[in-house]
C-alpha cells in the first residue's frame, strides 16, 4: 500500500481537490439559492481558461511579461461576465417555471458555450497548449521521492486565498448575510427588503469568478485546453458539492478534497476505478446520504 498512499499522491490530491473546490463552490451557491444544477458552470471554467490564454498570448505578442495577478483577474472577470449573462438571458425568465425547464435550459446554455467556442475560428475545437511558462517559469522541488512544482504551489495557494475571501464575504458581509438569508427562505428574505434578483446576480458573478480562476489554474498545471474541457471537471465538481451537502460552502470544499484524494488513489490502483470512482461516490451518497456530509435534511410537506 505504501506505493499508493505516498506523498506524491497526497500533493496531487490536494491540488486536484483545490480546483474542484473552486468550481463546486459556484455550484453549491447557485443551487442553494435557486435550486438549479447549473450544467453550464463547468463552461464558465473553460471560459476562464481561454481568457487567460488570450491574455498571456496578447502580452507575449507585445513582448511583455504578463502579470500573474492581472491574468487571474481577467480570468475571473471573464467567468463572472459569462455567468452573469447566462443568468440574465437564460435562467432569470424561467424563475417561476418548473425547475426542470431551468435544468434543460442549463444544458442548452452549456452546449451553446461549448459549441460556440469551438465554432469560433479563433478558439476552434481542438486542443491548444496553454503558454504556462510564458506566465510563470516552472521550478520543481524534490521532497523525498515526491516532486512538487511551483505550479502546484501557486495553484493551491491561490485557491486557498480565494476560498478564504469567499468565506469572509459569505459569513461577514452584508451581502453575504443576504445570500444566506435568501438560501434559507426566498420569500421571507424578499419581505425583509432583500432584492432577490440582485442577490442571484451576485451569486452567479461570484461562482463564475471562482470557476474562471480555476480555469486559469488548470491551464497552468495541465497546459492543454479545449472548449469541452469544462464538462468532466464540472460534473466532478458537482459531485463534490453533492457529497459535501449541496448548498453548504464548507461542504463543497470538504467534498472536493475527498473527491480529489479518492480519484488520485483510485487512479493509482486502476484506471477504470480512477475514472469511475466519482460516479460511484455520487450514486452511493445520493442513495444512502442524500443530504451529503454537511447538508441539512429536508422533507416534503404534505
Amino acid at each position: 500500500m505504501g506505493s499508493i498512499f505516498n506523498l506524491q499522491q497526497i500533493i496531487n490530491g490536494i491540488q486536484i481537490g483545490s480546483i474542484y473546490a473552486l468550481i463546486s463552490i459556484g455550484y453549491t451557491l447557485v443551487y442553494g439559492i435557486i435550486q438549479l444544477i447549473n450544467f453550464a458552470h463547468g463552461d464558465f471554467y473553460m471560459v476562464g481558461a481561454y481568457a487567460a490564454y488570450f491574455a498571456v498570448m496578447f502580452s507575449a505578442a507585445r513582448k511583455e511579461h504578463p502579470n500573474v495577478l492581472i491574468v487571474l483577474l481577467i480570468s475571473m472577470t471573464a467567468g463572472a461576465i459569462v455567468a452573469f449573462l447566462s443568468n440574465r438571458i437564460a435562467y432569470r425568465p424561467l424563475r417561476y417555471k418548473p425547475r426542470l425547464s431551468a435544468l434543460i435550459t442549463a444544458i442548452g446554455v452549456s452546449m451553446f458555450l461549448e459549441y460556440t467556442s469551438s465554432a469560433i475560428p479563433a478558439i476552434g475545437p481542438s486542443y491548444r497548449a496553454f503558454p504556462q511558462s510564458a506566465l510563470i517559469p516552472e521550478h520543481t522541488y524534490k521532497i523525498g521521492h515526491a516532486i512538487l512544482s511551483n505550479y502546484q504551489i501557486v495553484n493551491v495557494s491561490v485557491a486557498v486565498v480565494l476560498m478564504v475571501v469567499l468565506t469572509y464575504i459569505v459569513q461577514y458581509t452584508r451581502i453575504g448575510m443576504a445570500m444566506r438569508a435568501s438560501a434559507q427562505d426566498k420569500d421571507a428574505a424578499r419581505l425583509m427588503g432583500i432584492d432577490i434578483e440582485y442577490i442571484i446576480d451576485f451569486t452567479f458573478i461570484i461562482g463564475g469568478a471562482l470557476a474562471g480562476a480555476a480555469g486559469l489554474l488548470t491551464g497552468i498545471t495541465y497546459p492543454r485546453i479545449n472548449p469541452y474541457m469544462g464538462i468532466i471537471p464540472g460534473l466532478k465538481a458537482f459531485i463534490a458539492a453533492v457529497l459535501g451537502g449541496i448548498g453548504s460552502v464548507p461542504g463543497a470544499m470538504l467534498g472536493s478534497y475527498i473527491l480529489g484524494f479518492s480519484e488520485v488513489f483510485g487512479m493509482a490502483i486502476n484506471s477504470i476505478l480512477g475514472e469511475g470512482i466519482a460516479y460511484a461516490i455520487l450514486i452511493l451518497v445520493l442513495i444512502f446520504l442524500p443530504q451529503g456530509l454537511l447538508g441539512k435534511k429536508t422533507g416534503e410537506k404534505v
Partner: peptide, 25 residues
C-alpha cells in the same frame, strides 16, 4: 472566405433548445 465549422449545427440546436424552454416550456 472564412472557416465555417460543423459546430455551428450544435450551436443552432442549443439556441433552439433554450428558446423552446423560454417561449414554449
Amino acid at each position: 472566405p472564412f472557416h465555417v465549422g460543423p459546430e455551428w449545427r450544435m450551436v443552432i440546436f442549443s439556441v433552439l433548445l433554450v428558446a423552446t424552454m423560454l417561449y414554449k416550456t
